[in-house]
Write a protein that binds this DNA or RNA. Structure first.
Lengths: 339, 339
DNA sequence: CTGAAAGCGCTTACAG
DNA sequence: CTGAAAGCGCTTACAG
């Protein structure tokens, strides 16, 4: 048998569908006796309101969409975890959409009527492309996207994080830094590179940029160049932990002592970072907090789409600043220090 | 301005809303000239059908729900990645719901009208609880759930995987195997133990079960017993990689040569497995494939809810068989072989 | 406090 | 091939 509808409940309880709706939605002007009867019948029939019909009537779905460029690795599971935490607290549902290169251009547009707003992480798309794809009038919060989009923006302050790491390496004794950059065109990668370059300049130490692509293999390749002297460096700072770990393993393979001969540092603080030997010094980005904050901002925008008060930072994006996590690849001591 | 509706398009194109619907949905009986005009107007107005209204009319949402017990770690991101792959291929959307202990009992029921079916992973719930929560008539596929639910079931074939590993160890020369088991009561652990025991019997080699609890420490403790001869073994097969890695480190600490004196093997192929020295031989569970397969089964059930043909294995659950990944802890060579 | 009715935005028999 | 109309399942002014 199909699911019971509001009419079934109304008939069974001998009231109008309007009364069923009011009774079940907790409206005030309902006789207690009627409310009790309706609730009893609804429970007995296993009635659950049809979400689609409800959202059509209310012009509100109570769902938000999250658009991600990929789903590989711990970063995304942490982000989703943070979002889910907040989404559950707000009584919302989460619709997940991965926007990979090949996927249709109307993937986002098709979300109209399915969600009340969007958290979008699309570092690979330009502002124009993104704007063209987004359903008009749908509140949105952008994570690590190009600036200049209509919506709240939230980002990780990669430049500040990278600069902090360079400062730490210099304090630890480094004088010639090799920075293994992430893929060209990737916003995070570019910001980390820029922050590292600027900090090295300020500190007056040499910094060479080696092109990488966020994979362990590319980190290993960069380390090999350092190991055989093709690149001179007493510190290797990779733009993410995966590359740093690839480099770490490669350096050990080449018989280079870490951190004595070459200091190694990463970015992200993935779980593996604590488990490699020596444990990896890195920048911790509280990814779950980033996700939770994004949902929070979106929820406010959904309630008050145009209110200026909602704008966190009208000038630009609100920023999450990563924290330095010092482990064994940059210092001889074993103590883990967090600043 | 709000989003354009089908009426706006109809008015602008000077046709009926019925024609707009037919033209845009690719119905056959539409004059090409009319179709072209409607498409032009729809594009100009940026018209996108309202998903909620569409699903109310069609009694189909083109979305599926995935219910997970948690979101921590690589396992879930891999699972979601596999699901997303298949979901995108099928033109569906994915609604994510985390069903943690505290969360309301009607979390699942509220999905009615929002999804066409559910992939449920709820190892913490009994069959009765689960049945009570699921909206009646909603197709479902269960992952690692208790048996006996109305729906397709899918699971990892732990026993077959463990048996394959024992066979590999025997082929590599092992004659006395110590199996470090996982915690009592854990389904995965029990199945792996049973598979290992059966395979050892078939192969006619000795196998001792040592109790562990999936932690590195318990693996190290088991290894210590092997190292000091309390347990005689020329191979140590741990029920997961964490214990295997703990054992590996402990064996090295006790001066036992791996794999020459004692072969070591794990289960899961966590990222760390490739990074330890020597690299760990293990069983790879293709989690993404598990997720993709679940969505595939669900999609079929949605199309043909009651067809017997759709039933993969009416007797029980369809199983994903892990693959053997041979690395350096069981062979002297360095080559990584996958079977 | 309650019911009849309109409406949310679509799709699809039903006539023509 | 096309339009007018009914209907999907809900909510909420509008009367009473």
């Amino acid at each position: 048998m199909p699911n019971a509808t509001i009419r079934d409940v109304a008939r069974e309880a001998q009231v109008s569908v309007a009364s069923v709706s009011r009774a079940l939605n907790g409206h005030e002007r309902v006789r207690p006796e009627l409310r009790a009867r309706v609730q009893e019948v609804a429970a007995r029939l296993g009635y659950v309101p049809h979400a689609g019909a409800r959202s059509l009537s209310l012009a509100r779905t109570s769902a938000i969409g999250v658009v991600l460029p990929d789903l590989h690795g711990e970063f995304f599971s942490e982000l989703l975890r943070g979002m889910d935490r907040e989404v559950a607290a707000q009584g919302l549902a989460l619709l997940l959409t991965v926007l990979q290169d090949g996927r249709g251009l109307n993937t986002l547009a098709a979300l109209r009527g399915q969600v009340d707003g969007l958290v979008v992480m699309a570092p690979q798309l330009g502002a124009a492309e993104l704007r063209a794809q987004l359903p008009a009038g749908l509140p949105a919060v952008f994570l690590n996207c190009v600036p200049g989009l209509a919506g709240a923006a939230l980002r990780v302050d990669n430049a500040a994080g990278a600069a902090a790491m360079v400062d730490h390496l210099v304090a630890a004794g480094a004088r010639t830094i090799a920075h293994v950059a992430g893929p060209v065109g990737n916003v995070d990668a570019e910001e980390r590179r820029a922050g590292a370059v600027a900090a090295a300049e300020r500190a007056g130490v040499a910094l060479t940029v080696v092109q990488g692509d966020f994979t362990e293999a590319s980190g290993a390749a960069a380390a090999a160049q350092v190991a055989r002297g093709a690149i001179r460096a007493d510190a290797l700072f990779a733009a993410n932990d995966a590359m740093a770990i690839g480099a770490l393993v490669a350096l050990k393979g080449h018989g280079v002592a870490v951190p004595r001969q070459v200091r190694v540092a990463g970015f992200d603080d993935i779980p593996l970072a604590r488990l490699v030997t020596p444990a990896l010094t890195t920048m911790r980005v509280d990814i779950a907090a980033l996700g939770a904050r994004a949902v929070q901002l979106l929820a406010r925008r959904i309630v008050a789409p145009a209110e200026g008060l909602v704008e966190v930072d009208p000038a630009g994006a609100e920023a999450i600043v990563p924290r330095l996590v010092v482990r064994d690849t940059t210092t001889e001591t074993d103590r883990e220090t967090q600043s």
